[in-house]
Amino acid sequence: MLFLKLFLLFSLCSLTFSHDADFNPHLLPRPLIIQPEDIETQYEKFDDELNLHCTSWRFSVEANNLSPWKTIPEECLGYVKEYMIGRGYKLDLERVSSEAGVYAKNLELSGDGKDVWIFDIDETLLSNLPYYIEHGYGLEIFDPIEFDKWVQKGMAPAIEPSLKLYENILDLGFKVFLLTGRNEKLKSITIENLTKAGFRRWDKLILRDSEQHGKLAVVFKSEKRGEMVEEGYRIVGNSGDQWSDLLGADPSRRSFKLPNPMYYIP
């Protein structure tokens, strides 16, 4: 941002010294007078335009209109950072969890133990924001090796609105299935991290095994939902931060998309 402001100032100075085509070389140049309020107004207009641009980009991401994409726009780094560590992200998480809770409370369960709510893990139950703070909030190309190193630490905190929803879902009598794209080799540390973060009960934890390596997330998760349906389960709720958590075959009766402008998983 500082570079852009300096560039704008330099451009204004250049225009000031070059607008007179017929100048007298024997006369001293006129003093440059820049009104501070004019410069500040132009800075503010530029900042407003950039903010609108990045807000539009984030809206398109959440609406799944930009798929696929690899990194956040470089010019939106400050915007994404402010959103993720500020009130905006927290309010959006609270809104999603609140709406999911209202839906769940108004459902009449069958009583046969076959009504299932699916939760994704990363950026749905557990937050990897500490990792992404160190990796540009999604500005860097995703590195699975570095990310797995972070996962192995087992330090991801709970997403508090999701924890509240999770506990309500269990109390209402739903079966809870955790369906994640994490590799099976991360199962023990995933269980440890979930437990430490407050997620102490679930009915199934489903991870990728070696046979599913390389499959698109939407294919892998669709297949697993299909297996649930074949076993007689009814998928009445599904919470995830990626569209690939929610779309595909055998979708939930109703799905809830959590915000995530940092990365996209097909």
Rank of each mutant, 00 (worst) to 15 (best):
Phe10Ser: 15
Phe10Tyr: 14
Phe17Leu: 11
His19Phe: 13
Ala21Leu: 12
His26Ser: 10
Pro29Trp: 04
Pro31Lys: 13
Pro31Trp: 11
Asp38Gln: 13
Thr41Pro: 00
Thr41Lys: 10
Glu49Lys: 15
Asn51Arg: 05
His53Gln: 10
Thr55Ile: 08
Ser56Cys: 03
Trp57Ser: 01
Phe59Arg: 15
Val61His: 05
Leu66Gln: 01
Ser67Ile: 09
Trp69Pro: 04
Cys76Asp: 11
Tyr79Arg: 00
Arg87Gly: 07
Leu91Glu: 14
Asp92Tyr: 01
Asp92Gln: 11
Glu94Ile: 00
Glu94Thr: 02
Ser98Asn: 14
Glu99Tyr: 08
Ala100Gly: 00
Val102Asn: 04
Tyr103Met: 05
Tyr103Ala: 04
Ala104Ile: 12
Asn106Glu: 15
Leu107Lys: 07
Lys114Asn: 06
Asp115Thr: 04
Val116Glu: 12
Val116Cys: 09
Ile118Trp: 01
Phe119His: 09
Asp122Ala: 07
Glu123Ala: 03
Thr124Ile: 01
Tyr132Cys: 03
Ile133Gly: 01
Ile133Glu: 14
Glu134Gly: 04
Tyr137Asp: 07
Pro144Phe: 09
Glu146Met: 08
Phe147Val: 10
Val151Tyr: 13
Val151Pro: 06
Lys153Ile: 00
Pro157Lys: 07
Ala158Ile: 04
Pro161Tyr: 01
Ser162Ala: 14
Leu163Ala: 02
Lys164Ile: 15
Lys164Cys: 06
Lys164Ser: 09
Lys164Val: 15
Tyr166His: 13
Glu167Thr: 05
Ile169Ala: 13
Phe174Pro: 07
Lys175Asn: 01
Leu178Gln: 02
Thr180Gly: 04
Gly181Tyr: 10
Gly181Gln: 08
Arg182Ser: 02
Glu184Pro: 03
Leu186Pro: 08
Ser188Trp: 11
Asn193Met: 09
Ala197Lys: 11
Phe199Arg: 02
Trp202Phe: 15
Leu207Val: 00
Leu207Thr: 12
Gln212Arg: 12
His213Arg: 13
Lys215Gly: 00
Leu216Tyr: 13
Ala217Lys: 13
Val218Met: 10
Val219Ile: 13
Phe220Glu: 11
Lys224Gln: 10
Met228Asp: 03
Val229Pro: 10
Glu230Pro: 00
Glu230Leu: 06
Tyr233Ser: 08
Tyr233Lys: 05
Ile235Trp: 12
Asn238Asp: 07
Asp241Arg: 03
Gln242His: 04
Gln242Thr: 02
Trp243Pro: 05
Gly248Tyr: 12
Gly248Asp: 12
Ala249Gln: 12
Pro251Ser: 05
Pro259Glu: 08
